[in-house]
Amino acid sequence: MTKTVRARYTLEFKQEAVRLVHGGQSIAAAARTLGVVEQTLFNWVKADRLGKLTGADSKAVSVEQMEISRLRAELARVKMERDILGKATAYFAKAQS
């Protein structure tokens, strides 16, 4: 029997994750980017809205890890925008024919 260890995240990490969602990313996309479960991120967003978001100091997130998370989120956003623009271009090119 394998015992799973529950991950614990700092308040700063949770706040950054919530900022991604408030910045326009879907919970699913932000969760994939950060490597957390969607339900966990949903709970963090809900707790933040209620003013009850807290963090644990047992899993320190370094500045580099925060920057990597931010860059992953930005990359995901840019890819989404690129895909939307590609589809729009194809649609309008088809309409012109």
Rank of each mutant, 00 (worst) to 15 (best):
A47L: 12
E67H: 07
E74L: 10
G23Q: 08
T54D: 07
L41E: 00
E16K: 10
S62T: 15
Q25S: 08
I84Q: 12
A73H: 03
S97H: 07
L11T: 04
R32C: 03
R82M: 15
T54E: 11
A47V: 02
A29Q: 08
E64H: 07
D57G: 15
T40K: 01
F92Y: 12
G51S: 09
T33N: 10
S62I: 06
Q96C: 03
K94V: 04
M1G: 15
R72F: 05
K14I: 04
T4I: 13
Q65G: 08
A30T: 01
F13C: 01
G51F: 02
A28G: 08
E74T: 06
Q25F: 03
R49H: 11
A76E: 02
Q65Y: 06
Q39G: 10
D48F: 03
K46I: 08
A47F: 02
R82V: 14
V36N: 01
E67M: 07
F13L: 01
G55K: 12
A93I: 03
M80P: 02
L41D: 00
L50E: 14
G23C: 08
M66S: 10
A17W: 00
G24D: 11
S26T: 15
F42E: 00
V36P: 02
G35K: 02
G55A: 13
K46M: 10
T2A: 13
A90S: 12
W44Y: 05
S26A: 07
K14W: 02
R32I: 05
K14E: 02
E12T: 11
R8D: 01
A47E: 06
V78S: 09
A76R: 04
H22R: 15
R77N: 08
A73F: 01
L50H: 11
L50I: 07
R19W: 05
